[in-house]
Nucleic acid binder design. Structure first.
Lengths: 347, 347
DNA sequence: TTGAAAGCGCTAACAC
DNA sequence: GTGTTAGCGCTTTCAA
């Protein structure tokens, strides 16, 4: 039914080897036969079988995409946007993405994704905090690995990372520029490099503005940066510190929890307390007042990862390239106030 | 490097055929050899090659998942949740999902997804409104097709559909039960069966309550059910009808646009106008007041689709089964009012 | 510039 | 019960 290379060979009256050469654009085929073969291919609507090709070439044209359950289930479209970007670029590059989720807590003896075991992928993209056991398992196969928004110290892997330190600085500076001095930090899972870096940025910004760092203004003991934890952390923060005028939350999800808490206490945003988040998770645009945040180009990160993978697979580039993705301040109505400073002076 | 069936055969001192039989749990293999072989498999950490298996068996273990660009880019996590459900169930069933997006407007000569052409999938799941050209192209390959939340009249395909008519009825009845009589309907892309069915449910509910249907209360001329169109439609609706007390929007995205418009005009929700949506898109939980809606079990739809596909592929079930997914009223604060009726009487 | 043939790793029919 | 063997559709030497 579906034509095979033999059908083409027969129809074009050449050998299957010739057909194969034509498909791969081999130069030492005469224009004439090339035309003949291509005509047959068109007419029969022939496309080489992926399996057969994979079997002989050892290449599948698939890229594995690993995400933890937690991350994929997050209702904010952060990781899904990254996936989306990856998908778009993959289509461009004639590749397919095989997505799989893994538990965020790995039991001993947990298996690697089937696509690795059965050699169904040519490389793997690891997104977010993937359990180290999985990463270690992966290392044994010589597949190119690319981390996105997370990395585990090891040799010869690539990574697409967010410029979290600078982002944290910009966010904090934005508050400082508006005249805020007593600025809280709300974080969670602080051992995560991305979040820790944002915290570092916060501290740096304070320092360069000559504001002393005060650990009492920082609540970082929750284990996951989600709304409810932003809410809880804010309660704690306010209990100890009545005179805060600004809060930098390590991501938008927590920032929303922060705002929820402030609203409940009838604290005005930004008049009493200004709030800034991080990530620019689009679907939350609807919150009141609109949340200022640091934009993380999520689609682009997915795109970059697949571009890089494609280069690695065609050996155009070494398999240990790091790409740092810049972030950008998005001013909305949840920040400014304090004498209503009209704009950032440093900008 | 990675072991092949030969390595196992050698190690276990049997033929490759025996290894294959053991892998497939063939009963006429002695316990003893079975043990021997399994031991070798464990020790070498052998997993059969997907490509080789695919080549000979004609089965790939992959399922195609087709979505339009538009749908995948929607910021509300509706289709992504369906995908997520599919992914979970696929993992359960030892299958992989190959997701691809297609343009929502197909140019002539548009190619089918590569996974179809190269026979990289055993079946295809079509999600949402997929261009008819794509569907027609697909029909030529004898792959089982399953529609989700959309269907194109044709023979021998399966579908997972939302019970939109009953959903539309429930939503409208909920308003009616609270005492509302003048209830608007906000829709878009009304030729889409799902949306049209919700509209039908609206009309049915009115009829059974003895309220006359008034087309002036229905704005359905926008082309896509998105926020901004909900906003626009509401403006139109209010211009002509000052005395509306309830609005049923065909989905949550539009409902949010509705609320935005009402808020701008300082119309109180639900005191002046009650609003109900459809879909229960989680990320919008944060809007004020929380939006009443009809819950559509998105994960379950993906799960059901893959379950069904898995059954079809193993011939346990015919390839033209329709599954109707029930929806459920979710009461939040955007509805009720009108004399503050405390509860639905019909419930 | 083209063709013959080996072989990628596996399944399944058939033999023993 | 187990082994032999012929392919599945393709790529890739090697010869011609």
């Amino acid at each position: 039914m579906t034509p095979t290379i033999k059908d083409i060979a027969k129809k074009a009256d050449v050998s299957i080897a010739t057909v194969s050469l034509v498909i791969h654009n081999n130069k030492r085929i005469s224009e004439e036969t090339k035309k003949k073969v291509n005509k047959a291919i068109k007419e029969l609507n022939y496309h080489p079988s992926g399996s057969a090709r994979g079997l002989v070439s050892g290449k599948t044209g698939n890229i594995g995409f690993i995400l933890t359950n937690d991350h994929f289930l997050r209702s904010e479209p952060f990781y899904t946007r990254i996936f989306l970007g990856a998908e778009f670029e993959a289509r461009e590059k004639q590749l397919y993405i095989l997505l799989t989720t893994v538990p965020s807590e790995v039991k001993k003896g947990e298996k690697l994704p089937r696509f690795v075991l059965e050699r169904n992928v040519d490389g793997v993209i690891l997104v977010g905090k993937v359990p180290v056991e999985i990463v270690n398992g992966l290392k044994k196969y010589d597949l190119p690995l690319i981390f996105i928004d997370y990395e585990i110290p090891m040799e010869g892997y690539s990574a697409i990372l967010i410029d979290n330190v600078n982002g944290g600085m910009s966010a904090t500076q934005h508050l400082i520029n508006a005249g805020h001095k007593k600025i809280g930090f709300i974080g969670a899972d602080i051992s995560h490099p991305s979040i820790n870096d944002r915290f570092t940025g916060y501290k740096k910004a304070l320092k360069s503005a000559g504001i002393e760092f005060n650990p009492d203004l920082c609540i970082t003991d929750e284990n996951y940066p989600a709304r409810e934890n932003g809410y809880k952390a804010t309660k704690k923060l306010l209990k100890k510190n009545k005179d805060i005028t600004g809060i930098f939350a390590c991501n938008d999800a927590m920032a929303i929890g922060v705002m929820q808490c402030l609203k409940e206490k009838s604290i005005r945003i930004p008049e009493d307390i200004a709030v800034i988040g991080f990530d620019n998770v689009e679907s939350d645009l609807f919150i009141e007042p609109p949340l200022s945040t640091m934009n993380v180009p999520k689609l682009e990160m997915g795109i970059e990862a697949v571009k890089l993978m494609s280069q690695i697979l065609s050996k155009k580039v070494s398999s240990s390239k790091k790409i740092l993705i810049p972030v950008e301040l998005v001013k909305r109505q949840s920040t400014v106030a304090i004498n209503n400073v009209s704009a950032d002076k440093n900008k």
